[in-house]
């Protein structure tokens, strides 16, 4: 759980893996914003299906890996759907058709339709996010943000350095928990654990900063180790993604 999911060779070498992360990020946000304009379950269902198919074929994601992302999703989709069903404004509308009555709550067909559409929206957005996360190498994402997105290099690479410290934080957590057990404290979870972990994390950040300063981090124009340039894949994926969005919305 604490270690970042490694992008497999198949995913990294696939069409989606070779596309600029910036294009994928832009598309993910475009699909998200496009979905906000509809409460109908149709378009999100189409987009979810398109994202999953693209992830499996163009992204080379093994189906079992993709399935992992959908475990927490079902609960969230249920939560969002249920909240919109139970507390919908149309439940109070006398003109709405009554579907069922649960205790003091009156559920209407209108509310159920909208709740279904919103649960589908969760499904679509998560599918897009899963495909993005499983075809995008974090280092490549940051390279693209800096080289193609003109993000400030010190902040972007600082974040990457901190992100790559994650496995080390996982080790620290194991050590801290062992230390607690040796002192006779309970082995489970305790808020103090998080404070101890933050202490270790900040120490680690200090050491990283020192090491990076010693190598003149951010002190002037640098050459790039992994140059990224726009290519035909970016155009193809970008145009294809927008076409699917358009087709789903204007169907």
């Amino acid at each position: 759980m604490l270690t970042p999911a490694d992008i497999g060779v198949a995913q990294a070498g696939s069409l989606l893996g070779q596309t600029s992360p910036l294009v994928k990020l832009g598309l993910a946000l475009a699909w998200l914003i496009g979905l906000l304009f509809t409460l109908d379950p149709g378009p999100p269902a189409i987009l979810a299906l398109a994202a999953i198919l693209a992830g499996l074929t163009l992204g080379g994601i093994p189906p079992s890996r993709l399935a992992q992302a959908f475990a927490p999703l079902s609960a969230v989709a249920l939560g969002v759907g249920l909240a919109n069903l139970l507390f919908s404004a149309s439940n109070a509308d006398p003109a709405a058709t009554e579907l069922a009555r649960v205790g003091p709550l009156r559920l209407t067909t209108e509310a159920a339709l909208i709740a279904g559409g919103l649960a589908a929206r969760v499904f679509a957005i998560v599918s897009v996010g899963a495909v993005f996360a499983q075809t995008t190498d974090p280092a490549r994402l940051v390279d693209a943000l800096v080289q193609q997105g003109r993000a400030p290099a010190r902040f972007a690479y600082g974040a990457l350095a901190a992100y790559q410290a994650l496995p080390r934080l996982a080790d620290d957590l194991a050590t801290i928990r062992q230390a607690r057990r040796i002192r006779g404290l309970r082995g489970g979870w305790h808020p103090r654990l998080f404070v101890s972990l933050l202490v270790r994390a900040i120490r680690h950040a200090d050491q990283l900063a020192l090491a990076m300063d010693a190598r003149a981090f951010g002190s002037g124009p640098r050459s790039t180790f992994r140059p990224i340039s726009w290519g035909w894949r970016d155009l193809a994926v970008g145009a294809g993604g927008l076409a699917v969005l358009g087709a789903a919305l204007l169907r």
């Binding site: 999911a5 899963a130 993005f132 996360a133």
Partner: peptide, 11 residues
């Protein structure tokens, strides 16, 4: 988002 948030890119 990279650790597969249930909110996808909306996070």
């Amino acid at each position: 988002a990279l650790l597969l948030s249930p909110w996808g890119p909306d996070v």
